[in-house]
Design a binder for these strands. Structure first.
Length: 871
RNA sequence: GCCCGCUUGGCGGAAUCGGUAGACGCAAGGGACUUAAAAUCCCUCGACCUUUGGUUGUGCCGGUUCGACUCCGGCAGCGGGCACCA
């Protein structure tokens, strides 16, 4: 964007008019004043109601972009508004500073992850400060600092003691060329992103947290989170995935092994036509030992990687093991046993029976391998003989057929009956399972919090003694060889066993970075406490977070882990609350088109321009491929920086733009059209208030006895705006709040101030306007507040109160419909009686024309809204 | 593939409980002011028609209702998540 030059433009200062609003100077001035006065430093005060507002802290990826700014503009609006309403507000900011990008940068640019991270933090902190956000910067934390993660290590040891952490074999993506574990993101079409080698799955012994211990609690408590969006609660509910069903074992023909399966559809057991086990099932491993074809099949399945999305979208493949499972209700029936790539070892028992007629996945599989499809549930009233299942499974309700003793039952009764019969045979039982799995927290990476345990050949796993915490990351590491630098560090991992003093090794895995973000909100209550993770009284005062704000993309993982952590911390005696976030607002993502050059490399938007309608590189003119709209992220380079917007227009203008137009929960496609409009509004408010048409009444003067009709009308608008604005902010409808304030501005601009008392009305209106825009444009607000003759800061002034008498209109416009079509609009007194409204409606000429002389069949009157004449 | 959303003028969006579709802006067009421009101000702005009025219109198809952007059923397109990106 290149701003057009001109006198009214913020980028240019002709220096000739006092009406110029200089955003740069003004914003710096007020930021310094707030800072100097410590305006936003929070202290516990039991005498005042507290309000804890938190935006999800950022990963320090390098530069702040518009997506970050949207998040913080929303949070600051809430924080400043609540503050003006008299709350003792805690509004902190910090850095989610461990993570993979720092290591990628280390490998690509030979920078140490710590240097890279701290430099990014410094840059982003500076950028953040230019936004003028009401943060208590004294509480800033960075999760990569030992002062932070030492407490995390202690928390882990307490979880270990409480039985909430244990070791478990789990699968990872293995790059056989780089000898490195790959993140799912680093696996592209089954190959390592750098080496291009086909990925393998490997089993590693890893640390796991027992989130499933809280599965029921996490599920049940969702209903109480009434200030959370329904969609997030639904997503978590589905993620936990509580389902009841039947677990039972199949006996095999000519084989001593048994296969235990879980099903949510025991009613369809008579429709079973195969049994399938996961490629990682012990039985598959046993059979593969003597079978090179099966071994090859299993390794092919494993080349898909560990990502569930990849596994589920892959073509469904099976390998017939030749084994036959015996049907539990009919010993004469046998079912072929397959190894199938769509059966997940992590869910249920890692084995299923397939009923193709009533499960789409089973049907696809059966059609591919020519297995029988036998419908056993038939919709009520359908002839069972003619009911066929083709390419679409029938999953609806119905009556059982072809099912022996279940025939004639409905689905639910048949489930109960089938479970009862299996239980009677002793082959299995009705049970409840969860989709939720325990949380694997081990990562084979350097830039994370070291897991504080020691492996001793003699004593086994020994926790690091508390007095030896923190286990600090060594700084002298090399990324020249593949794998985890901690693992090949010459000395770091070699320690004496705390128990037997013999030679032992440190755990070289580090924690998943979701570990840090699962408790940071509580750390903000006492960020500098050295002896414990939380000062109990501070945590009791501030927690839970009253309003948490962040992207929807965190709807499940981060938010569920935090809920689990808070419960676990409570059980370990750290905290008093179980739920971390009382209110949640999930903002939509800021999206932008992505660009790729001919080599398939991502390009930044500023590297691309349109020439003759064709996108090309600015520097070489080579063609550029425009990709789809995606969430702004540094990895795809579709980020838009803030600097030049703030430089040209100021932070307030950008904040206004980010809050106008799009409602916060919706995705926002970033375009710079609109920034000029936002600036025009800033300049307009500035002119309106600094150059009033008439002299304003002095600050604090009493309401005059006489006020003109126009003045009274303006006052109604002022008070209606106060009322509606507050309501909008409470409900996160910032776009509407902005629209209201613009309407107020339009109304005040139209009042010439010459009528009786209008100088007083204008002062009331201007002061209200300034107070309302304060939470979104705080610098402009302070400057105008001062200009209106106030000595105290706007930031320290109370919110305006609406006069209830001025909020309701005396007359309303009621619409009149004839057979549902609008025919007239009638001004009527508020709450007019039914008879009056109906008479007025029927007397209207246009209504009579539409009625064509026909008699009224029915009259519907909704007071203050509508009359519908049905003829 | 599974789970969760979203879809309204040229564009962002408004319509809060089923009751006047398009508030408030952006862009565009026209005009005033100006030597000229910028800035500012005024007017027009869903589509169509036989224009003091009428028809039609909220992704598509169908339903419920006196009345549907809103509720129900089906479909399409777009986006998010899927456990090692954060």
């Amino acid at each position: 964007m290149s701003p057009a030059p001109g006198m009214g433009h913020p980028g240019r200062d002709e220096g000739c008019l006092m009406s110029r609003y200089n955003s740069k100077e003004t914003e710096a001035k007020w930021q310094a004043i707030w800072d100097q006065r410590g305006s936003f430093i929070a202290t516990e005060d039991p005498g005042r109601p507290k309000y804890y507002v938190l935006e999800m802290f950022p990963y320090p990826s390098g530069r702040l972009h518009v997506g970050h700014a949207r998040n913080y503009a929303i949070g600051d609006m809430v924080a400043r508004y609540k503050r003006a309403r008299g709350f003792n507000v805690l509004h902190p900011m910090g850095w989610d500073a461990f993570g993979l990008p720092a290591e990628n940068a280390a490998i690509a640019n030979k920078v140490h992850p710590a240097d890279w991270t701290y430099q990014n933090i410094a840059t982003m902190r500076d950028q953040l400060k230019t936004l003028g956000l009401a943060y208590d910067w004294t509480r800033e934390i960075a999760t990569c600092a030992p002062e932070y993660y030492r407490h995390e290590q202690k928390i882990f040891l307490d979880f270990l003691k409480a039985g909430l952490a244990y070791r478990k074999e789990s699968w990872v993506n293995w790059d056989p060329v780089e000898n490195t574990v790959l993140a799912n993101e680093q696996v592209i079409d089954g190959r390592g992103w750098r080496s291009g080698a086909p990925v393998e799955k490997r089993k590693l012994n890893q640390w796991v947290l027992k989130i499933t211990h809280y599965a029921d609690e996490l599920l049940d408590a969702l209903t109480k989170l009434d200030r959370w969006p329904d969609k997030v609660r639904t997503m978590q509910e589905k993620w936990i995935g509580k389902s009841s069903g039947l677990r039972f074992t199949f006996d095999l023909m000519d084989d001593a092994d048994k296969i235990e399966v879980f099903t949510t559809r025991p009613d369809t057991l008579f429709g079973a036509s195969f049994v399938a086990v996961s490629p990682n099932h012990p039985l598959a491993a046993r059979l593969a030992a003597g079978n090179p074809d099966l071994t090859a099949f299993i390794s092919e399945c494993n080349s898909i990687g560990t990502s569930e999305a990849a596994i589920e979208t892959a073509e469904k493949l099976g390998f017939d093991t030749g084994l036959k499972a015996i049907h539990p209700f009919d010993e004469t029936r046998t079912l072929p046993v397959y190894v199938a790539n769509f059966v997940l070892m992590e869910y249920g028992t890692g084995a299923i029976f397939g009923c193709p007629a009533h499960d789409q996945r089973d049907l696809d599989f059966a059609n591919k391998y020519r297995l029988p499809v036998l419908p056993v549930v038939v919709p009520e009233g359908t002839d069972p003989a003619s009911f066929k299942v083709g390419t679409e499974a029938y999953t609806g309700p119905g009556v059982l057929r072809n099912s022996g003793f279940l025939d004639g039952l409905d689905v639910e009764s048949a489930k109960r009956e089938a479970i009862g019969r299996i239980e009677a045979t002793g082959k299995g039982e009705g049970t409840t399972i969860y989709r939720l799995r325990d949380w694997g927290v081990s990562r084979q990476r350097y830039w994370g919090c070291p897991i504080p345990v020691i492996h001793c050949d003699a004593c086994g796993i020994v926790p690091v003694p508390e007095q030896d915490l923190p286990v600090e990351l060594p700084t002298d590491v090399s990324f020249d060889q593949p794998g985890n630098p901690l693992d090949h560090h010459p000395t770091w991992k070699h320690v004496a066993c705390p128990t037997c003093s013999g030679e032992a090794r440190r755990e070289t895995d580090t924690f998943d970075t979701f570990f840090e973000s699962s408790w940071y909100f509580a750390r903000f209550c006492s960020p500098h406490e050295t002896t414990t993770a939380f000062d109990r009284s501070a945590a009791d005062y501030w927690l839970p977070v009253d309003q948490y704000i962040g992207g929807v993309e965190h709807a499940v993982l981060h938010l569920l882990y935090s809920r689990f952590f808070t419960r676990a911390l409570k059980d370990c005696g750290y905290l008093s609350v179980a739920e971390p976030f009382e209110g949640l607002m999930t903002q939509g993502m800021v999206t932008h088109a992505t660009y790729k050059d001919a080599q398939g490399q991502w390009l930044y938007p500023e590297e691309v321009e349109q020439r003759d309608g064709v996108p090309v590189r600015i520097d070489g003119g080579e063609p550029v491929e425009i990709g789809r709209l995606e969430k702004m992220s540094k990895s795809k380079k579709n980020v838009v920086g803030l600097e030049h917007i703030i430089d040209t227009y100021g932070a307030d203008t950008m904040r206004l733009l980010l809050l106008s137009d799009s409602p916060p929960e919706r995705d926002l496609e970033w375009t710079e059209s609109g920034i000029d409009g936002a600036w025009r509004y800033v300049a307009r408010v500035w002119r309106l208030i600094t150059e009033p048409a008439v002299e304003l009444a002095p600050a604090g003067s009493p309401q005059p006895a006489e006020i003109s009709d126009k003045g009274q009308a303006a006052r109604r608008i002022v008070h209606k705006t106060i009322d509606g604005f507050g309501d909008d902010v409470e409900k996160f409808r910032f776009n509407k709040a902005v629209a209201r304030v613009r309407e107020l501005t339009n109304a005040l601009a139209e009042l010439d101030g010459k009528g009786a008392g209008e100088g007083w009305v204008l002062r009331e209106g201007y002061e209200t306007l300034v107070k309302l825009i304060g939470p979104m444009m705080p610098h402009l607000g302070e400057e105008l507040w001062q200009g209106l003759g106030h000595a105290e800061l706007l930031t320290e002034s109370p919110w305006p109160e609406a006069d209830p008498a001025l909020v309701v209109d005396e007359s309303v416009v009621v619409a009149v419909q004839v057979n549902g079509k609008l025919r007239a609009q009638l001004p009527l007194p508020r709450d007019a009686a039914k008879e009056i409204a109906e008479e007025a409606a029927l007397n209207d000429a246009n209504v009579q024309r539409a009625m064509e002389g026909k008699p009224v069949r029915k009259l519907i009157y909704v007071p203050n809204r509508i009359v519908n004449v049905v003829i």
